[in-house]
């Protein structure tokens, strides 16, 4: 059962990384225009003006 002392911190770290990524996405305002983002992938323009 000693393996648990590695696995639990590792799983928590991985989950925490996911949470951190979610926070980053939230702060980078990636949830502001879900419909627009869904449509933009269809346009062939090269988007060299990311969100201000």
């Amino acid at each position: 059962m000693a393996i648990l002392s590695y696995l639990i911190p590792v799983s928590l770290l991985l989950g925490g990384a996911g949470l951190a990524a979610f926070f980053w996405a939230l702060r980078a305002r990636q949830y502001e225009d879900p419909q627009g983002d869904a449509q933009r992938i269809l346009s062939s323009d090269y988007d060299n003006h990311p969100k201000p």
Binding site: D33, P34, Q35, G36, D45, K51
Partner: peptide
């Protein structure tokens, strides 16, 4: 919309929000 606006003189950038 974004192309027309960004080609307009004096406009630095234009970003559409489709949701709103």
């Amino acid at each position: 919309v974004e192309r027309a606006l960004s080609h307009h003189r004096g406009v630095r950038s234009a970003r559409v929000n489709l949701t709103l």
